[in-house]
């Protein structure tokens, strides 16, 4: 509606303004306005739609200025992790915010699963070798191992350990001060490798329900004794009992 009228009316005026002020100097002025705007947004960046709205510049001017700023190496484009089509412009002096990239563990808008899994495996092996470790011990081991080019922060390592706890590969225990906790202060949180409960390769023990077809059946709500889906005719059962 009005939005479409705005730029079109500006479109006619702006080039006149530009030519009036100076020959070619006006474009630098617009670039500067845009560059200042982008800088003001810091690590959050700004998309072209918002730029047009805030500066009231014509689309062609914005596109042109952005290209120019890019070739000068002043700004960079960052894709939003949730909406790949949406591009955000950031000053080269800033690193994109978590809200744009998704966080530390995202690369090119996608969760870097390979990297995380490698870190998890290394961390799990460390704890498995030592049987019981504190978070400080794990951070120290990471430093000493030197296996990773990028140094990980304590927070990042904590995140990895917590993910292992959620995977049920590692157990969070409080030190009691004796037995295996002899050298650890009482009440300190420690991490222990799940040897028995974890089963094979950290797989949690399969429960009674999960080991039968009904436990994993996506259609269990539609299943009735004499219905279209019924235990007597169930394909999952037939597959399960076919050995």
């Amino acid at each position: 509606m009005r939005k479409s009228e705005g730029p079109s009316s500006l479109k006619r005026k702006r080039p006149d303004l530009g030519t009036k002020n100076s020959s070619g100097g006006a474009l630098i002025g617009q670039e500067k306005v845009l560059y200042d705007l982008i800088c003001s947004k810091q690590s959050m960046g700004i998309c072209t739609f918002d730029m047009k709205r805030e500066t009231k510049f014509a689309e062609s001017v914005v596109t042109k200025s952005l290209k120019s700023l890019q070739t000068k190496g002043l700004i960079k484009i960052v894709q939003h992790y949730q909406n790949k089509g949406k591009k955000f412009y950031l000053s080269n002096d800033f690193e994109p915010a978590k809200e744009l990239t998704g966080g530390n563990w995202y690369r090119d808008g996608e969760l870097d699963k390979d990297y995380i899994n490698t870190l998890k495996q290394v961390c799990a092996r460390m704890i498995q070798r030592k049987k019981l470790m504190t978070i400080e011990g794990i951070v120290e081991s990471f430093k000493q191992s030197g296996a990773f080019k990028v140094e990980l922060s304590r927070e990042q390592i904590e995140e990895i350990v917590n993910a292992l706890v959620l995977d049920n590969q590692v157990m969070e225990v409080k030190s009691s001060g004796f037995g295996e906790f002899e050298f650890i202060p009482i009440g300190k949180i420690c991490y222990k490798y799940c040897t028995q409960g974890g089963g094979l390769k950290g797989e949690p023990k399969t429960g009674a329900m999960a080991s039968i077809p009904c436990g994993v059946c996506p259609r269990i709500t539609y299943c009735t004794p004499n219905g279209i889906i019924s235990p007597a005719t169930c394909v999952y059962y037939t597959k399960w009992l076919d050995f």
């Binding site: 993910a163 995977d167 049920n168 949690p204 429960g207 009674a208 999960a210 996506p218």
Partner: peptide, 24 residues
């Protein structure tokens, strides 16, 4: 454990982690 094991089998490992996180 029993409920988590159902979640793991039915919805996968990602769901299992999220469920455990919420449960904790």
């Amino acid at each position: 454990d029993e409920v988590e094991s159902i979640v793991l089998k039915r919805y996968g490992r990602d769901a299992y982690r999220m469920f455990r996180f919420l449960s904790k």
